[in-house]
Simulated scan of single mutants.
Amino acid sequence: MSTSPTPSTSIVFYDIAMRPPVETSCLAPNPWKSRLALNFKAVPYTTSWVPMPDIPNVRKSLNVPACRKFANGADYYTLPIIHDRATNTLVGDSFDIAVYLQKTYPNAGAGDLFPPQTLDYAYSPAHAPLVPLTECRDGFPEYAKFNVNVDAAFTAHIQLAMHGMSELFDPATAEISKAEFVRRAGLSKFEDFALVGEKREKTKESLKNMLGGLGKLFEKDTSGPFLLGTKANYADLIVGGWLRTFSVTLPKSEWEELRSWNGGVFGRLHDALEVYAQVK
């Protein structure tokens, strides 16, 4: 199989349409992981922007089943999805997308997304998350476990970002999207997500402590800014996807705080991944 697809057989990447212009308002972490991976692999792709309320219908129309479920067993329909027209393959989970890209185009772009390494990080949230977390997927088990734990860690603190997230909703569908988040969380109104005063400070401190543990992995190779020094891999992109989310949803002053924690480890990581953050 060719490792150099041509533009005529490019990948279609399905991402969530937020406030126009959509190219400057991407925020969801899992689509960001896949976008970073696509750019890392330098495979030709175009983005199909899907309004948030249309995601279930789009997945169903593509015959891509939901890859996660709510606690009550109901399907959780979300993005990303890729359709690789070179192989006529559809993949509907961010981790599976990265595995697919590595196995199908092993030598493309910047090379290996999954070099061997030990990713010794674990996080157990105190409360059930607002949305179902990605399960441990097949392939590259060290990275799969890391993905699950990083998702759990950041999701446990996502309430800090909810107000900023709502400001990036497409005005045409904002009320529908807010109602869906309220329904998932079992709240009465979107304003119940508000996190202010002492509660906000405690959650920020918890986020700082969580990142302190995660940051130790990035401090092992001092040549940085990546886990393995000067070359990025998918574990960096997993964290980088979440940093992209928080960079546009936290208040600017809080994002600058986060960037400075752990001696600036996460600020440097975020900036170094800018080369893979093009929105096409």
Results as ranks from 00 to 15, higher is better:
Tyr276Cys: 08
Glu135Gln: 11
Leu168Ser: 11
Ser10Gly: 07
Lys216Ile: 14
Pro65Met: 06
Tyr234Ile: 06
Gly229His: 00
Tyr121Ala: 05
Glu175Pro: 07
Arg244Tyr: 14
Pro21Ser: 07
Ile11Trp: 04
Thr230Gly: 10
Pro141Asn: 03
Ser166Val: 03
Ala86Leu: 02
Asp236Ala: 00
Val239Gly: 09
Thr173Leu: 12
Ala86Gln: 12
Pro65Gly: 00
Glu198His: 09
Phe140Gly: 03
Gly139Thr: 07
Lys208Phe: 02
Val64Gln: 13
Thr6Glu: 07
Lys189Ser: 06
Val131Tyr: 06
Ala98Pro: 03
Met18Asp: 13
Ala37Leu: 13
Leu187Trp: 06
Arg259Ala: 15
Val99Pro: 01
Lys178Cys: 01
Ala161Met: 01
Ala71Ile: 02
Lys178Asp: 05
Thr24Ser: 09
Thr134Asn: 13
Leu168Asp: 13
Lys216Gly: 13
Ala42Trp: 00
Pro7Ala: 05
Ser61Glu: 04
Pro116Cys: 02
Ala194Pro: 09
Gly92Leu: 04
Trp255Pro: 02
Gln278Tyr: 00
Ser247Ala: 15
Ala17Thr: 09
Gly111Gln: 03
Val22Ile: 11
Phe246Ala: 01
Pro5Tyr: 07
Tyr234Val: 09
His163Gln: 12
Gly224His: 06
Asp15His: 11
Gly229Leu: 05
Val275Trp: 11
Pro65Gln: 05
Arg68Ala: 06
Arg85Leu: 04
Glu191Met: 00
Gly213Tyr: 10
Arg68Phe: 10
Leu36Gly: 01
Glu205Val: 11
Arg244Met: 14
Glu23Gln: 12
Asn30Cys: 10
Ser177Trp: 05
Pro225Trp: 04
Val248Ile: 09
Gly241Phe: 00
Thr46Lys: 14
Ile176Lys: 10
Gly73Ser: 12
Arg137Met: 03
Gly212Ile: 02
Ser25Pro: 05
Val50Ala: 06
Ala174His: 06
Ala161Ser: 13
Leu130Met: 11
Tyr105Asp: 14
Met165Tyr: 04
Leu90Ala: 15
Arg59Ser: 06
Lys220Leu: 15
Glu191Tyr: 00
Val196Tyr: 12
Asp170Arg: 15
Val43Thr: 01
Thr47Leu: 07
Lys41Glu: 03
Ile158Arg: 11
Val91His: 01
Tyr234Arg: 11
Ser188Val: 03
Pro132Thr: 09
Thr87Val: 14
Lys199Ile: 04
Pro7Leu: 08
Asp221Asn: 14
Asp170Phe: 15
Glu254Met: 01
Gly240Glu: 00
Leu227His: 07
Gln159Ala: 15
Trp255Phe: 09
Asp170Cys: 13
Ser177Asn: 11
Phe246Cys: 03
Tyr276Thr: 10
Asn147Gly: 13
Trp242Ala: 01
Leu160Ser: 02
Gly240Ile: 02
Ala108His: 15
Trp255Lys: 10
Thr78Glu: 00
Val265Asn: 02
Gln102Trp: 10
Lys216Thr: 12
Val43Lys: 01
Asn147Leu: 13
Pro116Lys: 15
His83Val: 09
Ser25Phe: 14
Pro125Val: 07
Leu217Tyr: 12
Ala74Asn: 10
Lys204Val: 13
Gly263Gln: 05
Met162Cys: 11
Ile158Gly: 08
Ala66Ser: 15
Asp96Ser: 08
Leu101Tyr: 03
Pro116Phe: 08
Asp221Tyr: 10
Glu205Trp: 07
Val182Trp: 08
Met210Phe: 09
Leu36Lys: 01
Ala126Phe: 06
Ile97Lys: 03
